[in-house]
Write a protein that binds this DNA or RNA. Structure first.
Length: 403
RNA sequence: GGAGGGGUGGCCGAGCGGUCAAUGGCAGCAGACUGUAAAUCUGCCGGGUUUUCCCUACGUUGGUUCAAAUCCAACCCCCUCCA
């Protein structure tokens, strides 16, 4: 459909919209300033990853269009565990771990959102603030009666588990109840009227919308984003090394930049639209580049995405290093520095830098002529390296050996 | 509760007394080709050891045997059908 509000127009044009509970209603609301919307984030790990970037960018877009975004930390719900998309109960996290994860995760939001008390400032809240002190019996009387178990059983998150005859504990069964209550509580406390999230959250979101109408007569909205896949069909954001973490202490700036630099040709335009603030016409131009020239677009993407998440300095350093390493065959400061005792045998240097997982693998790679020292092919496992040098495995993986 | 079937390397999935570190596929890594892309082809793909040697591994624990992922027993878990 065609939207009137700048916000939804942008979301649609940029590819963020999967489903909306009431598109006209959201459009009307978004046409006025101050639309308040939230997205919840689980605190199951010490950092968010690229898979969460869609959600974060949704909040950023909202702020850019005059709305007030809320990043909701799931300090309470993480103690329950969202059963969506999982076959088994997740290991329950203890409170200290959740608190540590929250402290670690919250910093990344400051790069994407401007926090404060103004009508257009972002807020960070924690549902532990209202979930932990709930009185069980009162809660059941006030809210539990609005939940139909019949309906809950039809929710994907529940039904899929039951259909596969996988166990679903009562604890997990309650997750959607608490998430629904979050929405109502955010509406009551702050006037928040919209919840956004990934497409897997649709069921949880619509239950919140319904609950709000039933207990408070509130008109609430929900909007989900599509699952982003790579052009080859794989899930976006996974690499051999694991998740692409947003936190700098979990993944080096260099590797973060490289992740974006190496996306599939066919994904460049899509990713520029979703994960950068690049204007549409510029993206269209970059997308139109042919053949090897598309590398320029990837560099733009890598710089923009890295600048957003890690800062302009990190992006510049990574680009300079990439130029020095790949275009000039030298080395750049952003390459990983690995401290080793000189002299060191080639095999040991390969394992010390992590370029090879074991000595056996190191020997194999040497046999495959995949290893270079300062750009020169080497093959003798026992070759002694006497001082600082650049060690490379293949074309892409490099490390600087330092004292 | 009864009757069957099954648990194998990151995943899927063969093997069913020695020649099994275990066919094959996927994923991954490297090489060629390129553009730090895709596709394709080739090689590698538990660990150690300069290498037909050792260690670890086929749900768990014991046992039989010169020898077990393969046979036996007990236990744990999963699936299907019946009640």
């Amino acid at each position: 459909m065609t939207y009137k509000s700048d916000y939804l127009q942008t979301l649609q044009r940029r590819g963020y919209i999967h489903q909306i509970t009431d598109a006209e209603g959201v459009d009307a609301r978004a046409s006025k300033p101050g639309l308040m919307a939230y997205i919840g984030f689980d605190l199951t790990g010490p950092s968010l990853h690229v898979g969460h970037l869609m959600s974060i960018m949704m909040l950023r877009r909202l702020q850019q269009h005059g709305g007030k975004p809320i990043a909701l930390m799931g300090g309470g719900t993480t103690r329950i565990g969202d059963p969506s998309g999982k076959d088994t109960q997740r290991q329950l996290l203890d409170n200290d771990t959740i608190a540590a994860n929250k402290a670690s995760i919250r910093r990344v939001f400051e790069r994407f959102l401007t926090f404060g008390d103004g009508p257009n400032d972002a807020m960070m809240l924690d549902n532990a603030d209202w979930l932990l002190d709930l009185n069980y019996v009162e809660f059941l009387r006030d809210y539990g009666r609005h939940f139909s178990v019949n309906r809950m059983l039809t929710m994907d998150s529940v039904r899929l588990r039951l259909d596969r005859e996988q166990p679903l504990s009562f604890l997990e069964f309650n997750y959607m109840v608490l998430q629904s209550y979050d929405f109502v509580e955010l509406n009551r406390r702050y006037g928040c009227v919209m919840q956004m999230g990934g497409s897997d959250q649709w069921g949880n979101i619509t239950m919140g919308v319904d609950l709000g109408r039933r207990v408070a007569g509130a008109e609430l909205y929900g909007l989900t984003t599509p699952l982003i896949t790579n052009a080859d069909g794989s899930k976006m954001g996974k690499t051999a090394a694991g998740a692409v973490w947003l936190n700098a202490d979990m993944l080096a700036d260099w590797d973060y930049w490289q992740f974006w630099r190496n996306v599939d040709d066919r994904d460049v335009g899509k990713f520029l639209r979703l994960f950068t603030d690049m204007p549409d016409d510029e993206i269209a131009r970059l997308e139109g580049l042919e053949g090897a020239e598309i590398n320029d677009a990837k560099i733009v993407l890598a710089n923009a995405a890295t600048t957003l998440c890690r800062g302009a300095h990190a992006a510049e350093a990574a680009e300079a290093t990439a130029r020095a390493t790949f275009a000039e065959g030298g080395a750049g400061e952003a390459l990983p520095h690995v401290s080793v005792p000189f002299p060191i045998a080639l095999v040991d240097a390969l394992t010390a830098t992590g370029l090879a997982a074991s000595k056996g693998e190191a020997r194999r790679k040497l046999g495959e002529n995949a290893v270079r020292l300062d750009g020169e092919p080497v093959s003798d496992p026992n070759h002694l390296i006497s001082g600082p040098a650049r060690l490379s495995l293949g074309r892409k993986r490099h490390a600087l050996l330092v004292k």
